[in-house]
Design a protein around this nucleic acid. Sequence first.
DNA 1: ATACGAGCAATACGGTGTATCGATATGAGA
DNA 2: TCTCATATCGATACACCGTATTGCTCGTAT
Lengths: 230, 230
Amino acid sequence: MTVWDRPEPPTRPVPLDRERIVAAAIALADEGGLEAVSLRKVAARLDAGPMRLYGYISTKEELFDLMVDEVQAEILPEEPSGDWRETLGILAHRTRQAALRHEWLADLLGGRPSLGPNGLAVTEATLAAVDGLADIDTVMRAVETVSAYFTGAIRREIANLRAERATGLSKRDWQRASGPHVTRMLATGRFPALAKAVYDGTDVDAEASFATGLDWVLDAVAAKLTRPPV
Amino acid sequence: MTVWDRPEPPTRPVPLDRERIVAAAIALADEGGLEAVSLRKVAARLDAGPMRLYGYISTKEELFDLMVDEVQAEILPEEPSGDWRETLGILAHRTRQAALRHEWLADLLGGRPSLGPNGLAVTEATLAAVDGLADIDTVMRAVETVSAYFTGAIRREIANLRAERATGLSKRDWQRASGPHVTRMLATGRFPALAKAVYDGTDVDAEASFATGLDWVLDAVAAKLTRPPV
DNA sequence: ATACGAGCAATACGGTGTATCGATATGAGA
DNA sequence: TCTCATATCGATACACCGTATTGCTCGTAT
């Protein structure tokens, strides 16, 4: 029985950690959307059996939580600006950019409280920016309002983007001509204001539209923050 | 071979239509959340095989679309008020109430463009309310901003509500004392503003918080709508 | 040398969405 | 009235899913 007769010992499995698991899951999601993320496929990317993952997470939902938290690291600004308005604006824009890079984020954003380290850090940065500008309840209302806005806006933007991609047409072209159902509905005359909006509205840049709405909301918040509470 | 020996002829299957299918699906979702909705279970409620549904819908996603559109009928106000601000506010509040009745709506809201008859009617009502108050692009920005706000706010509210239900504690109690992870994180001192918010903030009524944020956003929109565009 | 304990892979279960296809009942045409 | 085409439905099947269970295989401690 020479060495060559004996097989090499089975290679020890590649060590795993949450970081690698989450990275694999994010890669999968970036390529094929959230629905392409299955524990089996994530595990396969790491040359592991599906069950191996259960040492690191105990549920698929938890994997999603980790994914969101990981991406939230991209949102944190390097250094805090002195201007609360600028800080909030930057956070909103960075969240949007993260969602454009990882469209699946739109499906998860706001879906559950984000309590991971990066999620908490984002919240901290947000609160720190407006801390002391008013009583705490007003401040809370302010940050919640702003984040409700950009959460909703991002979600809609991604939803529209997907719809456009699915039909290969810009939103307005599609509404105007090629979406047979919508066209037919508009032709019924039951939606005059909508028809007008579709035919007369211009196709605005998504980022500009996001920025405008954000500015308005920040205007509103500014009015409440700088004035002492009634 | 008497009559009694012969079985009765097989009863023809109960006729189906989208309305009945959607109603069954909504019932299922109301009881057990979106994840309780499976084509098999929906079909079973209607004494049908799963494949039968494919005559009425061609994909599960389409069923979700129908569900959303159905619920949007609950949102439409009976008669339009003359005041645009009141109309937008009512639409927002009714959407929120619909989401409280059908929590799964929060998972779907804003997830894709809603082009069903009721969805279009809601959009029409929204646009009609502000029609003519400014140039069309400003008007679009206005309704999109408001709806981004309440979409996001509703989603967060439902998310928090679920988290509270899962732990049996109010959000603040849970953050303060019982969420071991959060407590530990706050104790690190790395999140001073957040810690202050958690410990000093009061537990505000969700509806009041929603209404306040909404008012702020409407304030902002009002400022842009009543003033001619720059 | 042996016992133990952790980590891992394999297997299995009950579910999912949906494609395919054969039976069957219904309505039309002869 | 009988026959045939057609639409509809049910069963079956497939590929996949998340996860519980089980038993093996190691490295380590005794």
